[in-house]
Nucleic acid binder design. Structure first.
Lengths: 194, 194
DNA sequence: AAATATAGCAACCGGTCGATCGCTATATTG
DNA sequence: CAATATAGCGATCGACCGGTTGCTATATTT
């Protein structure tokens, strides 16, 4: 018997890449099976239903995102230094992880795809984005406390604008293949975290 | 014989709303037919192929966007005044046109959905967004010329950041049903166009 | 009134979807 | 060694997909 855990990992790695391009609905079991040299039953057996496969794919993507964006900044001094490190890593993740996420940020894709539907996938997307926002908000708050950001700064406003910058960067990279946008995102962050 | 033009209009109105929720791929001919009390043949006959239906849907959405966002600002004085009017109308379009676009901005949806695919739909999305960017850039340029924006202002940078603000607003409205984001978007624009 | 053009219908095509089922082959446990 | 558990296969299901084809009924033109 092959190691089930290993197969599951292969499915999810392929699933993340596929969903990044085709969306989480376009992520079909048959295509996943073909791509991995498995049968459809062999793929679905690990998850039970497509919805559970979609949620598992999202969680795997979140692990990757955390590892690529949060982890490198985690050991920075909390506050502005860490925020800057996160923004750097965030941009690097969007521009360099073309192999893992060939269709761009999976959370941007999934958010748009499920924002008007009910169900477990939508809830998971919202949950993951909320977790990310809380982390950002925390460091913004620390930065204010340390006097690195102006005392009157609206925490949620900064998080909102940061999110916009990277949504725009993702679009500019994916739809227009415009690498200059990386510099624009960097400057926008600088202006925001001045 | 019913008026063909009128039927086509009904199909596109329904198509814009459906695609806003389900995406342009999730916009299926069968569902469109059911929703309108037509047969599948009766729907497809007006467009020939699904791809042409998708492009037609995008163009109709662009007409609506132009009418809702650009037209109200068109007669403002070019430059900063018009930019502010556009931003106001843009936010209003995202927050108020829930009937026309129940799943949020169709261009945000379509951009994400087709940014990693080849074909006519992708090209049309990119073209429409480019037209919109040119219009914005024009008024930014005028505003700089009039001294309403700082002389050293990077035109493309402003357009990039504006786009990010409204992508973020769309996400906040659709995924989190957070109406407070309208005020955040307004403040972000203000900060950008100070 | 006769001939022509067309909007729309109903039925159907091959293909793919998610999902289910019985089965085999292997690994683990007793 | 025998019994059990399970990873994965392959066939199959009903539903739906985009698209095609004859046809009807109506409106227009001659």
């Amino acid at each position: 018997m092959a190691e089930a855990r290993h197969t599951r990992d292969r499915i999810l790695a392929c699933g993340v890449a596929l969903a990044s391009v085709e969306g989480l609905e376009g992520l079909t079991i048959g295509r996943l099976a073909t791509e991995l040299g498995l049968s459809k039953g062999g793929v679905l057996g690990h998850f039970g239903t497509k919805e559970r496969l979609q949620v598992a794919t999202l969680r795997r993507a979140a692990e990757l995102f955390t590892h690529l964006v949060w982890a490198p900044a985690e050991h920075e001094r909390p506050g502005l230094a860490r925020l800057r490190a996160v923004c750097d890593a965030w941009a690097r993740y969007l521009v360099e992880e073309r192999e893992t996420f060939p269709g761009g940020c999976l959370f941007a894709t999934a958010s748009i795809e499920f924002d008007a539907r009910a169900g477990a996938v939508r809830e998971e997307v919202a949950r993951l984005l909320r977790v990310w926002r809380v982390r950002l908000a925390h460091d913004v708050r620390v930065a204010i406390g340390e006097g690195e950001l102006a005392a009157g700064t609206d925490v949620e406003q900064v998080v909102f604008e940061l999110n916009g910058i990277f949504l725009a960067l993702n679009q500019q990279l994916q739809l227009f293949r415009d690498e200059r946008a990386v510099e624009r995102a960097r400057r926008a962050c600088e202006r925001l975290l001045s």
